[in-house]
Every structure is written in C-alpha cells, then in structure tokens.
Nucleic acid binder design. Structure first.
Lengths: 215, 215
DNA sequence: GTTAGCATGTAAGGAGTTACATGATTTT
DNA sequence: AAAATCATGTAACTCCTTACATGCTAAC
C-alpha cells in the first residue's frame, strides 16, 4: 500500500510515458505541466528517480547520442580534429519499463479519493490525455462532490459564527469560498464536455458513421 | 534568523493577541481563520506551543475556571454533594508574554517578501486588523507585484511553447492563469480600499473631527 | 453505558527544501 | 575569460502528518 501522495511518482511516470527524458529536462516539463500548482527541486527529483529505478518501474539508458544539435555557422571543423569526438556530456535518460507502463495504467484507471483530493487532482488532470473517458468523468465528478462538501461545511461555519471574525479574516474567507465556487463551475463545464464526448462515442450510429465514411 | 516560513508561529501569536486560549480551541480558530488555505493537526500545534513557551513568547496559565456553562435543567443538586467540586478538567491556557507581544509587533510591521510569498501571505492578511494601514498597503502591493511577475513568466511560457502540451495540460494551465488573474483583481480592489482609508486618515480635517466629537 | 467530542500530548516517519559539491557546455 | 545554463547528485534539515496513548465530560 503506497502512501496516498504519489504525486511526483505519477507525474514522472506520466511524462516518461510520452517520451524518455533525462532528469534535468524532466524537471522542467514537470514544473511546466503542473504549472502554478506545484514545483519540485532536484533534491526531490533525483532521489525519486533512483527509487523508481530500484522498484523496476523505470530504467536508465546511459549516454544516448546527446543530440549534436543542427548548428548554424561553423558546424564543427571537419577533418583533422585530434580528439575522438568526446561530444556530449553525461546524461542519464530514463524510460518506462513494461512494469512501469503497467503500473501507470493501473494508477490512471483508479477513480477514488486518491484521484480527486487536493494533492493528487492536478496531476491526474494533467494526465487526462492518457486516461480513458469514463475514468476522467468519474474523477471530475468525485472532485466536484468533494468541493461542494467542503463549501457546505464552510458556509455553515460562516452562518453559524461560533467566534466572530474581523473584517479581514472574513474577506479572506469570502475570497476562498469564491475560489472554490469557481472551481466547481469549471468542473461543471468540463463534465458536460466529457459527457458530450462519451455520448458521441457511444452513439456513432448510422448518420455519424456514414458521415465519417464520406469525410 | 528564523526560517522564512513561520506561518504557524505568526498565526498562534496573532490569535493569542486577541485573547488567551487553550490548545484545542486555538487549533479550531486557526483552521477557521486560515480557512481553506491551510490546516494544522495537534501533532504540529502542541510541539509548536511548547517551543514558543521555551522561547519565552507565550506563557501558560494552568487550569483557569473552566467556564461552568449556564446549564439548562438540573443545574447541579445544590447542598450536600460530597466532592469539593472537582469541576473542570485540565486545560492549559496560553497567552502572550510582553516579549511575545513585542515580537508579534515586529513581525506584523515587516513588509518584505516574507510577508507576500505564497506561504505567508494568507496568515499576514488574516492578521491585517492588527497591522497598521501603511504596512497593509505595502504588503498588498508586494503581493500584487509578485503575482504579476509570475503571470508574466507563465504567459511567456505559453506563447513560446518549447514543448507542446496536450489539451488537458493546457486547460489546467489556463485555469491556473485565470485564478492568478482573479487574485490580482482582488488585490486591486483591496488596495484601492486601503488607499481610500489612508487618505481619509491623513485628512481627518475640520468636518471629520467635529463629527467625531459630536458622535 | 456507550458513543461523541473535548483535551493534551509523543514517536515515527513522509515529503520536500536548501545548501553544498562537482563539472561540462554555451554564450557573451 | 567570465557568466550563464546544463546536468547530476548528496546531506542535513524543516515542516507537518499519522498513529498512538491517555483520560475527561456530555449527551443519548
């Protein structure tokens, strides 16, 4: 039983499933994809990669040709250079093993609290392109339920004020509530989009099919 | 030099400055005031209180009369009860020391990155009622600058896409940007409110003052 | 009388950061 | 020649959570 917060693990496996990468590049992609929500340092990433290798989910491919990039200008004096081309410095490229792919599929197929709690939702969403439509829908709905529950709790705390909050604390609260409400709206629109897709997929009946054939 | 993330410390001092409290109650208030942004467990709070006591910033007032609450019904058979009223269980009440008050004032008077970075901003804002107007304004402005900087970086990453993001990763990014933009708007309205107040305070000229005297 | 909530604490450990250490390559 | 950026890693430390341990008090 893994600890519920495998954010980094899932993110790494997800990105490596798109294409093999070395650590440095992986980190940049990670922090781009997870965006403003989360950022990891090398001190976190490298040990995590090590652990994944030890668990057999990813493997290293040492020193691939480090892409002698299509240079402009003097592309590298041809002939007589002495050194036997020591081009490219050490780079450890990681890719998924078969086991890793399998594990990732299992993770991406689960639609439980582990998928929609605060910590994990962002990563799971970022990897939706690799997730099947039904799971996407269930994760979105789970997240929505979770958020509305929380909104309910907070609204009750606001109407039943067991201890008065001052002006600024209240404003902070109000802003937090509004933010959560916006996320619910966002989820609503995503959910309806997904439902539309699911419907279109389940009903590629006469018309659709003939259209496709003609197109 | 304290580590930059004294969120809990600041929050505790701020709440205790409003009124002395015992740990259990303190935690509830903490998680109410910091709202959806942050929540602390007892395993965090109690050791932190211990540390603050050791640093001389707060002091314990053992076993104050534990508020025999105004009961309905049989309020407690009067006369002949044997036990010498062992009412009220152990409760450790904390309050600020003079040193603690001083320290809090110093903290609340600083308007640097430590006040407006993600981690700290919420707490500092929640304690704005105890912060002077000028500092409030500078903290809000600092936060605003910080956020717009970040927005700039992200927008550039979006227009200069060094690596294509798929549909869902893009949508996540878009949502994150929108959220940050909303926070900027929120800050704008807060800033203009604060400026209004500062102006009103700097110019409590004839009319204002006579009003006050009459009120 | 037993469940739920009040109340205080400790121990172990997870998750991540910062700072350090090292060095190659590219750009200015 | 210097500065920036690429690239990989480790060690120490911080912050916080979970799970445990304990016991009171109120309500049903």
């Amino acid at each position: 039983m893994r600890s519920r917060s495998d954010v980094l693990e899932t993110a790494v496996l997800g990105l490596l499933n798109e294409s093999p990468l070395h650590g440095y590049e992986l980190r940049k992609r990670l922090n781009l994809v997870l965006g403003s929500f989360r950022a990891f340092s090398y001190g976190t990433l490298y040990p995590a990669l090590k652990a994944l290798v030890m668990r057999g989910l990813i493997a290293t491919t040492e020193n691939d040709p480090p892409t002698p990039p299509p240079r402009k200008g003097k592309t590298g004096i041809p002939g007589r250079t002495a050194k036997p081309k020591p081009i490219g410095r050490r780079r450890v490229v990681y890719e998924l093993t078969a086991e890793g792919k399998e594990h990732l599929q299992t993770v991406l197929a689960t639609a439980g609290p582990a998928a929609w709690e605060d910590d994990n939702f962002d990563v799971r969403f970022a990897l939706f392109a690799q997730t099947d439509a039904e799971t996407r829908l269930r994760v979105l709905e789970g997240r929505r339920t979770r958020l509305t529950e929380r909104l309910e709790t907070f609204r009750q705390a606001a109407t039943h004020p067991r201890s008065r909050l001052d002006e600024y604390a209240l404003e902070l609260q109000r802003f937090g509530l509004e933010r959560a409400e916006r996320e619910v709206h966002w989820l609503d629109s995503l959910i309806s989009t997904e439902r539309g897709r699911a419907a279109a997929q389940n009903r590629p009946s006469q018309q659709e099919q003939t259209k496709k054939e003609r197109g």
